[in-house]
Design a protein around this nucleic acid. Sequence first.
DNA 1: ATGTGTTGAGTTACCCGTAACGTTACGTTA
DNA 2: TAACGTAACGTTACGGGTAACTCAACACAT
Lengths: 338, 338
Amino acid sequence: MKNKQVSLAEVARAAGVSKMTASRVLRDEGGFSEKTRTKVMAEVDRLGYLPNRLATVFAGDQKTTFVGVSIPELGNEIFAQVLEGIDRKLVAFGHQSVLGLTEHALENEEKWIETVLSWQPAGLIVTGRSHTPRAVQMLRNSGLPVVELWDFNSAPLDMCVGLNHFDSGYSMGRYLATNGYRKFAYIGTSHHSANAASSRLAGYTKAIEDAGGTLIKQLQLRDAPGFYPGYYGTEQLLASGEEAEVIFYQNDNMAVGGYEYCKKKGLSVPDDIGIAGWGDLPIASIQPYRLTSISVPHLKIGQQAAELMLSRIAGQPMVSTKDVGFRLIPGTTVQKAP
Amino acid sequence: MKNKQVSLAEVARAAGVSKMTASRVLRDEGGFSEKTRTKVMAEVDRLGYLPNRLATVFAGDQKTTFVGVSIPELGNEIFAQVLEGIDRKLVAFGHQSVLGLTEHALENEEKWIETVLSWQPAGLIVTGRSHTPRAVQMLRNSGLPVVELWDFNSAPLDMCVGLNHFDSGYSMGRYLATNGYRKFAYIGTSHHSANAASSRLAGYTKAIEDAGGTLIKQLQLRDAPGFYPGYYGTEQLLASGEEAEVIFYQNDNMAVGGYEYCKKKGLSVPDDIGIAGWGDLPIASIQPYRLTSISVPHLKIGQQAAELMLSRIAGQPMVSTKDVGFRLIPGTTVQKAP
DNA sequence: ATGTGTTGAGTTACCCGTAACGTTACGTTA
DNA sequence: TAACGTAACGTTACGGGTAACTCAACACAT
């Protein structure tokens, strides 16, 4: 199998025409006879010719059809869905996603950006609003369309699709306060630095302050934000002796874990303790209760990102920021004000 | 931002040397003075030069560092994990994944293969063993490393990593029969044709036959294999009046859905009915019971696939097929023979 | 002073398509 | 019949790097 790739020149020679004529036939550009077309296409089939798009790009000093898509991880089903939404849309318009998993590290992102840019992509979609200075520099310099996902940013590098995480945390805090809660807790994971989750916490904290309540405890676990960290984090929190009335979790996976711990310990939710999650994740949809949470349009984020990207590639002028918003799910896991 | 990309020639001119010298400096090839190196690197920084790797590939008639990775969907957490495993490994060795979501359709795969091949990738990783004839033709013709994932195939196109789905279904059937079950049922989804799940069903059926039992009902829903299809599929099955003693589901998501339905209907598992899943998915790990299932090494599949790919790219001779196997989880949701 | 080797460059050709332009062989019109 | 138009195809140049080769300058041994 050391078949050297068949080139257009070989097809042309076999068909007894020039490269140019063969090229015209393949692009159906016109300016050739039907007989020639038949002959060329026959040779294409016979030799199994596949065009080398690299050369095409090269010839016209264009870009490839690749769009770099960088997300933190795929273990998080939200990002997996966002990616799926993006790719579906891109593929429908003749583009391909080049994957980048940053594992929440900006240095990884920077390295990935450098590599992907060297392959002349049509554009880049990245997660988050914070990047290394060099990454910003490279993105700016490239002159390529860039979409920043997830964290809504009114002053994006180029384009932005996401939601205001601070506001979502604030909404939850205010909602809980409105329903009579005074002593709040938060459980999240912090193996990554400045991210959307910390914005949520900041908003939550602010709402509590504004309402005159107290954030009596915040727990930052060194783990992935899943069911068991939620379970054991809750155990740890309750064992600490602090008398939280309601716990806001980084996401639904953790919240459901917390719920299960409370249930096991004989605590009644919401009578003894309130539980709130974030994200409206699949795990919440299969519980016999309705988890209080924040619903986020994952698929919409991906699709919108891809749409912005595509219209910029097509050269259409477009609004360049899009706040997809969020929705508070009242649920049944916190007490309602009388 | 219509900055034309800075080329090596511009860097060279600015540094007062030839393209070739600049090229040598950048590749640290030697044959230049320290003074020249400093000057060239200064201009690289000043102009923000990023190499155009396309040209390099082009010049040397080489391949890009892209590896095409095609999977059916990302909604399925198994495939998301497999992809993550692949990408981590590939990136560590200087490669990038170009994503392809086939949505279980071979025509999509074929089209994707054609497109990706035209960009001169270093190799392709695809899911499943069945492809369109033209897809097989193109893959063969390319002479590129190809890994077929998921479904173990002793006669792969090139390389293969996966497990024998038929055997896994057979094992489950035999296990259940050994524990005294005689009247079997199966619930799966069939919006896709020949796939790994149907191999599992075939193995299950065969085991039942061999044990002298009866598959009294098999339900193929037109839906994604999730919790609710499992829930309502079970309702439908039980309402049909058939007296199944045990139900084998296409995967754990469906099985847990089935379990919840039984629980709601007051049926005791495993006393009144047996429940078995497949995949050892995350959903099973957060239940208060241990689901009878088949455990599959997802991450290992991805890693192994990437490893095979990388060693083939590096030109190392390698075993080209790898059966990663599976493990039956006895669980607590089926009755044990006395 | 001459020959030889080494260092530090520059020159040329090429990769595979395509844009731009050139060339034939006709047919058509004045 | 000369002048012109057009369909069908060919030729040339180019893009951004790199392999392979050439070349100039200088050091050093003979």
